[in-house]
Design a protein around this nucleic acid. Structure first.
Length: 316
DNA sequence: AAGTACTTCAACCGCGGAGTG
DNA sequence: CCACTCCGCGGTTGAAGTACT
């Protein structure tokens, strides 16, 4: 029989009912859960409400710089695989990341009058946006060790009204946030001289943890060896020539600059690149900057209304 | 102050895959 | 196999909030 099902925003009472039911019976089997709990909602709706909102470990508040960096990085690898990306951002939901991408990233692309998938926009992200994010993360980490991130409840947040769970202020040390980056994104202030140790890299790619900077991060970094100070594509250990075509497969971040072999000329071998001790800058990066200057009028016009106040660091 | 445009994000929808009988 | 149900994912919508004129 088809009982009348509710739709639209959830009420406090419905939230309470769902929370209490799951506290007593656990989650899963959503259709029967909805029925047994007496909720006039579809199982789907209950699942969504729980996973995206009521779940105790859902992380609220603004997307941090580190999370932004991660989203850009992971999206460049996996595209719109939101749930997969979300797995690497503890407490964030696929919905939230998807919303972030659509409202922020796609907006910027639109304002630049280019497609998010275009090379132009990807280069902008890779050579300007992401390095700048890294710089800001570094700056934040060195400027203060007491900076806190507070997860603020929104006006839609019912949870604080009826229980104590998840109402603690989330306080995160910036150094810890940096440690939470995946190990193939290394923030480093020095040169390319990280010591490669095979035993560190090994095949033990079993952990999804972001904490260990000396071990590969599962499927993200199968092709990487990671050291304390640098991340080196496996291809480059004994063979200087990249063997895959995905530019990001070979992207290395050292000294706050992205090194991306495949951004270079047709003869993209690693020998083409020069490293320095301040940061690793390749010829392409210079070329890109040069072309940016050449097109400064275009870019500045675009950039002028491209970034909101929060993003004004971009211009400096 | 009021009207309008824009932004955000919670929630919905359709689809495809997995499981089951 | 086939039919059916359930679940999870990605795309989309629209209400509420905010900014702008």
């Amino acid at each position: 029989m088809m009982m009348d099902l509710r739709r639209g925003p959830w009420t406090v009472e419905e939230d309470l009912t769902l929370i209490n039911y799951i506290a007593n019976h656990g989650e899963g089997r959503w259709n029967s859960l909805a029925r047994c709990a007496g909720l006039k909602r579809t199982g789907k709706s209950c699942r969504l409400r729980w996973l995206n909102y009521l779940r105790p470990d859902v992380r609220r508040g603004n997307i941090t710089l580190e999370e932004q960096l991660l989203i850009l990085e992971l999206h460049s690898r996996w595209g719109n695989r939101w749930s997969k990306i979300a797995q690497h951002l503890p407490g964030r939901t696929d919905n939230e990341i998807k919303n972030y991408w659509r409202t922020r990233v796609q907006k910027h692309a639109k304002q630049l009058k280019c497609d998010v998938n275009s090379k132009q926009f990807k280069d902008t992200m890779r050579y300007l946006w992401m390095p700048r994010l890294v710089e800001r993360i570094q700056a934040a980490a060195t400027n203060t060790t007491t900076a806190n991130v507070t997860a603020a409840a929104t006006s839609h947040d019912h949870r604080g009204q009826f229980n104590n769970f998840n109402n603690t202020t989330t306080t995160t040390n910036n150094n810890n946030m940096i440690n939470n980056l995946p190990s193939n994104i290394i923030i480093s202030n020095n040169d390319f001289g990280g010591t490669y140790t095979p035993e560190n890299s090994s095949t033990a790619a079993s952990s999804d943890s972001f904490g260990a900077q000396v071990s590969p991060v599962s499927d993200l970094t199968e092709q990487y060896y990671t050291t304390n100070n640098s991340t080196i594509p496996v291809n480059n250990i004994n063979n200087p020539t990249p063997t895959t075509t995905n530019p990001l497969d070979h992207q290395i971040l050292i000294g706050g600059a992205y090194y991306n072999p495949s951004m270079s000329s047709n003869t993209s071998t690693y020998e083409n690149y020069s490293f320095n001790t301040e940061g690793l800058i390749d010829d392409n990066y210079h070329n890109f900057q040069a072309s940016m200057e050449q097109n400064s009028q275009y870019w500045l016009e675009g950039v002028d209304n491209l970034w909101n106040v929060e993003d004004m660091w971009f211009l400096q």
